Amino acid sequence: MPKMRRVSTLMCRPGMRLSKPVISDRGVTLLKHGVELNQLYIQKLFTMGIDYLFIDDPMTEDIIIEDPLREETRAFARIQLQQIFSAFSYGIDMGKADFYIGQCHKVSLMIIDDLDGCNNESLMLTNMNTKCNNIEQRFILNALNVCIYAAKMGLIESLPKKDIIALCMGALLHDLGIVWMPQHLFCKNEKLTTEELTEVQKHTEWGYQLLINIKSLPHNAAYCALQHHEKMDGSGYPLKLKDYQIHPFAKWVGLLDAYDAMTNSRPYRKALMPHEALDVLYASAGTLYEKSMVESFRNKVAVFPVGLNVKLNTGEIGIVSKVGPSFMHRPTIRILKTPSCEELLKPYEIDLSQHLNIMVREIV
């Protein structure tokens, strides 16, 4: 595995060298492995929506960041999701729809195989606290993240492979209905009006209408589009279904979609910290979300993955260096900067499981 550090793009400095290639949402390689960054590259990547980079760093070269997916899988998935978004935005006949569903099936298989071959039993997802510039970017990022979560949970729950594939396809396509959503509602940086909220909520029915007649798509995947905003107590939409009336795959996708939405920013709000998002889910377990699913997810997701840059409540800045299986929400942090932002010549580590008064305050 390559030795590298995940750094927020705006915190990168000229002279840093890339440990991984930079690939766009469309699968295009923007910068190759080993390229030395300059200020022009840094600013350009940020304006293109690239929120973090993997760089060489002698202070953290022993910290191995295990991305759950191969770069080839990510690139292929991005390309297919972009093409699916474009194709369904402008209308599509059933013949072509079957082709795109076939590609969606292939993406699901690649993601499942990557995760199944990963040595780490927990799930560490590094695409958090990102900003999307348009509705297509958000669709791609959300679809990919929710699919990764769904595949991992399906493997953990030992579901039959055909069910994991159907769950993944439902995760990839659950928000397809937003292709018909007015762009200005996505960009609005204040609370939606009642009328606007009603319009946005129609995306569940739009997505179902787009998918249900495609013969090559499992019906339980289409139900994910229709039911992923339903809630256990009947307070969801569009049908106000309760508990057993909601398909189990839709329950999973709704839960994972909610977590992904909370941990990524929106025009009208900042992203929640991962542990804060888990607390919100746990507080709603049994009322909005299936309790057993929330507990299973909570026990397996590493809220602060190895390689993540964080700032502690002490003001110190560092990188997550270890995540123990017994204390997944209290990782070990390698401190790289003092509270006054001075770089340390000799970094030191703090095990948060042994220092309960110290906590992660923000992702940087």
Rank of each mutant, 00 (worst) to 15 (best):
M1P: 11
K3G: 07
K3I: 07
R5P: 00
R13D: 00
K20G: 03
R26H: 09
T29C: 07
L30W: 01
L31P: 06
H33W: 01
G34Y: 01
E36L: 06
Y41F: 15
L45N: 06
G49C: 09
I55T: 11
D56L: 15
D56S: 14
D57C: 00
P68W: 00
R70W: 04
R70L: 11
A75Y: 04
A77W: 01
R78W: 08
I79G: 05
Q80I: 11
Q83Y: 14
F85M: 08
A87D: 04
I92Q: 10
M94P: 01
Y100H: 14
C104A: 12
V107N: 09
L109W: 09
L109T: 09
L109D: 13
I112R: 05
D116A: 11
C118V: 07
E121A: 00
L123E: 04
T130G: 10
L144Q: 11
V146K: 03
A150L: 02
A151M: 11
K152G: 01
M153W: 00
P160V: 07
K162E: 15
I164K: 04
L167V: 09
C168V: 10
C168T: 09
A171K: 04
L172Y: 06
L172F: 12
H174G: 15
H174C: 13
H174Q: 13
D175W: 02
L176V: 15
Q183K: 13
F186P: 03
C187K: 10
E190T: 12
T193P: 00
E196D: 06
L197W: 05
T198V: 08
H203A: 05
Y208G: 07
L211K: 07
L211N: 10
I212V: 10
P218L: 03
P218M: 05
N220T: 15
Y223F: 12
Y223E: 15
C224G: 12
Q227C: 08
E230N: 09
D233K: 11
G234K: 12
G234I: 10
L241M: 12
K242A: 05
F249G: 00
Y259G: 08
Y268C: 08
R269H: 05
A271C: 05
L288G: 08
K291V: 08
S296E: 04
N299D: 15
N299P: 06
V301P: 02
F304R: 01
L312A: 04
L312G: 05
G315D: 06
E316V: 02
I319D: 05
P325L: 10
F327T: 09
M328R: 14
H329P: 03
R330T: 13
R334G: 01
T338M: 05
T338R: 06
S340D: 15
E342A: 02
K346I: 14
P347F: 03
E349M: 00
I350M: 05
I350K: 03
I350E: 00
S353H: 05
H355E: 12
N357D: 15
R361M: 10
V364F: 00
